[in-house]
Design a protein around this nucleic acid. Structure first.
Lengths: 120, 120
DNA sequence: TTTATATTTTAGTCATCACTAAAATATAAT
DNA sequence: ATTATATTTTAGTGATGACTAAAATATAAA
């Protein structure tokens, strides 16, 4: 079975995940928002579901999908970083990470007895 | 050009990265540690270098490679999580992430004892 | 039941890619 | 210069995988 990492590495699947990250959507709606066939989307959803990365709820003839962020481990941060920066190609994702670390560092230091654990 | 995410999704490249994560190694040494041809390794190194994920230093006839962790962004945590758990297939990587978040949450709420996430 | 709607599944095509073997390039040693 | 060592590059192969079109399945509406 495919690993979460390999599944997420595929751009089309990232698009799908973004569409159902916090919002439940029917398979047909997902497909209607993407420049590919219904069948293609269905195949992607199958893989994601088999890996436990999304869950499905059936209502009548419709199948509603939604992501399960807690199943992504550290990959959550990779995806969300890509999405907030807008550019999927994570151009300056390294810098974003840098800034995040700096923020976390300051927060930790400030809350903890004001000792400063210097970072470069 | 390939994205860091797609490059890292390939198991063989993760093996290579693990070998040169903090330790510089000659191309030949890397190849000698893996069950593939010298040529195959060289091709992987080329892709990684083109993406800026590894750097190369030439010394005589040898080419020494080393990873550039700061270029991986949030992917660093994905890789290191895979490596500490031992299993590359990130079986229970989600739980690890869960625990990490819990720790971070507690650390933020109480006084953190100066222990910062990341490693020594 | 018949028809429409929503989704999955199957078969086949095409591109990508990891790999091997061999040729090419480059530096060092004799 | 020749030989050995270290690495890259090229050409070709096989497997994987994303996609389309069409067939199959399932539920709802007429």
């Amino acid at each position: 079975m495919a690993t979460p990492l390999s599944l997420v590495a595929e751009p089309r699947r990232r698009e799908i995940l973004q569409l159902i990250w916090r919002q439940e959507r029917a398979a047909g709606e997902i497909a209607s928002l993407l420049p590919v066939t219904f069948g293609a989307v269905s195949q992607h959803l199958r893989l994601l579901r088999e890996a436990g990365l999304v869950s499905m709820r059936r209502d009548g003839q419709r199948h509603f999908y939604v992501a399960r962020p807690e199943q992504f481990g550290p990959l959550v941060h990779v995806l969300e970083a890509m999405w907030v920066t807008g550019l999927d190609e994570l151009k300056s994702l390294a810098e974003a990470e840098e800034r995040a670390s700096a923020r976390a560092g300051r927060a930790t230091v400030r809350r903890s007895s004001g000792r400063k654990k210097g970072h470069p």
